[in-house]
């Protein structure tokens, strides 16, 4: 007689007692191992955060503090030189981090909010409403973001708040597409149909089922948009249409009067750009890595709605008879 022997199944991993702590450590570990450049990006982003928050403590000079050293090249006293008004370039760059951070975060938060609002409602409600809204989104996206910004700036005028609002509007509508896509795919999932079948109200379905599942998508959009927002603010300030002087926006440091002196004091325009480039690169890398790591995780079932499928489906095995 034979006995039913199954091939060995690998043991199920023990459920961690401290879910959240180990999840973060797990995530960081994977980040460093699988996406080293993403880890570098994370460090850069953190550096930006620290510089921005603690600018007052880190910068040796004030952001508008003039000294008598006009246009002096990088030296011991002034690590990156001074500009035409005698201001320390290094300090201004550090304060610039704060600006990029503030404008970037605010604009992106707003933009993401619009994206979710527009995308989720459009996707969820569907029908005629969806069609019309999508045409509107098409039209909006047909105009390149920076041109849309210019149009809006000519309407709202320049200034810090205006810049934030303009950037958020220009970037926000585009993201709604992605959110809508995510909502649509979740809407067709069985558990949503089940919710509808047992009579859940639309609001309940939206909040309990759909929103938590698009969380990963939203985080992805957010990280992508931040570097875009920072670049856009820099571009607008460069054109003179963004933050007014004397704000040391990295973009602004390359424009206006600086252009008259840049041949004589190239460090004025060199360093802001390098820092901007590094920050954007770092954030992009980290965003890429984040996306990579979050996606499969979501499928694996981290979160309230995830379920782990059993490793083997044990079918009914008929005992074979030996002659």
């Amino acid at each position: 007689m034979t006995d039913v022997k199954l091939s060995k199944s690998s043991p199920d991993p023990a459920m961690p007692t401290d879910m959240r702590g180990s999840a973060i450590r797990d995530f960081l570990g994977r980040l460093v191992r699988e996406h080293p450049m993403g880890a570098a990006g994370l460090l850069i982003t953190l550096a930006l955060l620290i510089l921005g928050i603690f600018a007052d403590l880190i910068a040796p000079f004030g952001l508008n503090e003039t000294t008598s050293n006009f246009m002096s090249p990088p030296s011991g006293a002034h690590l990156l030189g001074t500009d035409n008004l005698g201001r320390d370039v290094f300090s201004r760059i550090i304060y610039g981090a704060r600006i990029s951070l503030v404008v970037g975060l605010c604009a992106t938060a707003l933009a993401t909010f619009y994206s979710v609002l527009l995308g989720a409602t459009s996707g969820f409600i569907g029908g005629r409403f969806d069609v019309i809204v999508q045409r509107f989104v098409d039209a909006w996206m047909a105009v390149p973001a920076i041109i849309m910004s210019l149009l809006l700036i000519s309407v709202f005028g320049t200034g810090t708040i205006q810049t934030i609002i303009v950037i958020s509007l220009a970037l926000g509508v585009g993201g709604s597409r992605i959110v809508r896509g995510a909502v649509l795919s979740i809407k067709s999932n069985a558990y949503v149909e089940a919710g509808v079948a047992i009579g859940c109200s639309n609001g309940r379905i939206l909040i309990r089922h759909i929103l938590p599942n698009i969380a990963a998508t939203v985080v992805t959009i957010f990280t992508l948009r931040i570097s875009e927002a920072i670049l856009m603010e820099a571009a607008l300030s460069f054109l003179g249409l963004g933050l007014p002087p004397p704000n040391p926006s990295w973009g602004a440091m390359l424009s206006g009067t600086a252009r008259n002196y840049m041949f004589l004091a190239p460090w004025m325009v060199l360093w802001p750009g390098i820092v901007l480039m590094t920050v954007v690169w770092g954030m992009n890398m980290f965003g890429d890595a984040l996306r990579d790591l979050l996606d499969p995780k979501l499928r694996g079932g981290v979160g309230r709605f995830g379920r782990r499928a059993p490793k083997h489906t044990e079918s009914e095995v008929e005992r074979s008879h030996a002659k």
Binding site: A235, M262, P266, V269, L276
Partner: peptide, 21 residues
């Protein structure tokens, strides 16, 4: 990836300034 991160206004400026210097 670098190409995506380089701000065009900065690159353009560099290409004007440094050949001149």
């Amino acid at each position: 990836i670098l190409a995506l991160a380089i701000p065009p206004f900065w690159l353009g400026t560099m290409l004007i300034v440094f050949p001149s210097i």
